[in-house]
């Protein structure tokens, strides 16, 4: 197996990079979307049940099925991967962002208003920093999950390590079938752990000492 990996080291490195790059970009996009939706949901309380419904039902939709539904709309290649990964990535972040933003006490919001902060300033300087630890926790879950979802998204010929897994599955019984599948899987797990570590370090630097546990 070592020989297998060494033979294909450049391809493995390239696919790993693509995989991580896809996940990071999709999670970033998902964070922006999820926080924006959460802000909307917390300011218009009537929307909250809808958001909760979407974020819990969404997670029960099999990713392969969603990918299949997307194909006629967005075709094959990178685009369906981005759409599916972003969709799943947004769900845990949305849920946590709603909880985090709701956790900001009304007293503080009134205090901010009473001091002459407009809604944008209040969001940037009060709501976001206070909800950040919870949002970041959602982001970590989301990143882990997205590493796996991104592998499945490769079914529609997307980028990343998923391609190797499907190659392996397609030639079961063949000479390198196990090698392909196993190498890609281990690489995904290792990369996921590394990303998680990075996010923890990010938390160290971005969560105010006044509210960190």
């Amino acid at each position: 197996m070592l020989e297998f990996v060494l033979d294909r080291a450049p391809d493995l490195a390239y696919r790993s990079f693509q995989h991580v790059s896809l996940v990071v970009q999709c999670v970033l996009l998902a964070t922006v979307i999820a926080v924006a939706v959460a802000l909307l949901v917390t300011t218009v309380p009537r929307l909250k049940p809808v958001a909760n419904f979407v974020s819990s039902v969404g997670l029960t939709v099999p990713s392969l099925a969603l990918l299949g539904l997307m194909l006629p709309v967005v075709g094959i290649g990178t685009l369906p991967s981005v759409a599916v990964v972003t969709f799943y990535a947004a769900l845990p972040i949305l849920r946590n962002a709603v909880v985090g933003l709701e956790g900001v006490s009304g007293n503080l919001l009134e205090s901010a208003r009473g001091m002459g902060m407009n809604p944008l300033l209040t969001f940037l300087r009060v709501q976001l920093p206070l909800a950040w630890p919870v949002i970041l926790a959602g982001l970590r879950v989301s990143t882990q999950m997205s590493m796996g979802v991104a592998a499945i998204a490769a079914y529609a010929l997307g980028p990343g390590l998923g391609g190797w897994i499907f190659t392996g599955l397609a030639q079961i019984g063949g000479q390198n079938a196990v090698n392909y599948a196993l190498t890609a899987t281990i690489a995904i797990v290792v990369l996921a752990l590394l990303l998680d570590l990075l996010l923890r370090v990010l938390g160290r630097f971005t969560i105010s000492r006044g509210i960190s546990a």
């Binding site: 007293n107 009134e110 205090s111 009473g114 001091m115 920093p129 105010s208």
Partner: peptide, 13 residues
Amino acid sequence: YVIQGGSLFPHMT
């Protein structure tokens, strides 16, 4: 504007 408990922002010094 001063309200009960000071309502300080906990993430700021």
